[in-house]
């Protein structure tokens, strides 16, 4: 097609340039301010040109704050979130698609419904459950009257207590209770030809063999996409790690970064140091995006189809 599209191409170019500026601008100002001294910032405000204090500021973050150990926590939380989501979603999608179960539709609907109400909305009561993960069991025993029975036989009712607050498990588990992964794998399984299954059956493959030898290798890209997506989501969580961990040594890096800004007004905070912290905290996920962008984009598209 030959036509004159000059005006629209120029407009599109300008628009994209503004968009890039909007995204990169704050990142550049973060980096340049992180490379200036506190005194420079007090005199000149935010830095338009990079200075020489970058490594000094980074060192301040590493020595004076808990960011290093909190980054380790973030790493554990993000990695376990990604791994657990991938494995559990894969298994549940496999059960829903490849087995004759009467309640498959119901189960899938129950899993999918989790997408509607994000963790941030139900944080109050999720916190209460995490404070004692046996509380639902206790409530059921109380409600059904089993506890009165137990109390009359053994002398006291069953009241189990186990808090997962301030543990890595507690930080991760509510994030895994999410339906996106199952949805993604189900969509992927549906695109596979039915003959694949029939051929495998004819060769005598049972459920486990089919899962490991056929589906697993085929699903590699889906795994990679979901892994990148959930890793980033785990790393960037804020509200749940904020309430789920109360000691600085259990908090994640993003929460730790937000805590670097003093609450009280008065003295201007040490913004260069805080910006160096922001650079440090964003380094892992940004590197991941740079290296695995293909999978990220694919995951975003797949997860919402």
């Amino acid at each position: 097609m030959v036509e004159n599209a000059r005006s629209i191409n120029i407009a599109a170019g300008i628009l994209l340039a503004i968009g890039i500026l909007y995204i990169v601008g704050p990142l550049y100002l973060t980096l340049s301010t992180a490379s200036q001294s506190y005194e420079y910032m007090l005199r000149n405000g935010l830095a338009w040109v990079p200075g020489t204090e970058f490594f000094a500021n980074i060192e301040k973050v590493i020595h004076d704050t808990r960011i290093p150990i909190q980054m380790l926590n973030s790493m554990i939380v993000a990695f376990s979130n990604a791994l657990a989501t991938c494995v559990l979603s894969f298994l549940s999608a496999y059960a829903i698609v490849y087995f004759r179960i009467r309640w498959a539709g119901v189960v899938f609907a129950l899993i999918l419904a989790t997408i509607m109400l994000p963790l941030d909305i139900r944080v109050i009561t999720t916190y209460q459950v995490a404070a004692n993960i046996f509380s639902p069991l206790n409530a059921v025993l109380d409600f059904t009257g089993l506890n009165t029975l137990i109390a009359s036989v053994f002398g006291s009712p069953v009241q189990l207590e186990l808090s997962v607050l301030d543990t890595h498990f507690g930080l991760v588990a509510p994030l895994v209770a999410h339906g996106t992964g199952t949805f993604l794998f189900r969509q992927f399984f549906m695109t596979l030809p039915k003959d694949l299954f029939k051929a495998a059956r004819m060769d005598g493959a049972g459920p486990i063999r089919f899962l490991i030898d056929i589906l697993l290798p085929l699903a590699r890209t889906s795994f990679a996409s979901l892994f990148v997506l959930t890793f980033l989501s785990g790393w960037t969580q804020y509200l749940w790690p904020l309430v789920g961990a109360s000691t600085p040594d259990m908090q994640t890096a993003v929460v730790g970064l937000a805590r670097l800004v003093p609450d009280a007004d008065g003295q201007v905070p040490d913004f260069p140091m805080i910006m160096a912290g922001a650079v440090l905290v964003s380094l892992v996920p940004l590197t991941m995006i740079a290296l695995l962008q293909r999978f990220l984009v694919q995951g975003l598209v797949l997860s919402e189809k």
């Binding site: 890039i20 995204i23 910006m275 905290v281 991941m288």
Partner: peptide
């Protein structure tokens, strides 16, 4: 470039915007 913000936590960009 337009995909980069996916890797930056809401709280991190909040801290940055609070400064900017």
């Amino acid at each position: 470039i337009l995909v980069w913000p996916k890797g930056i936590a809401g709280a991190s960009i909040g801290v940055v915007f609070a400064f900017i």
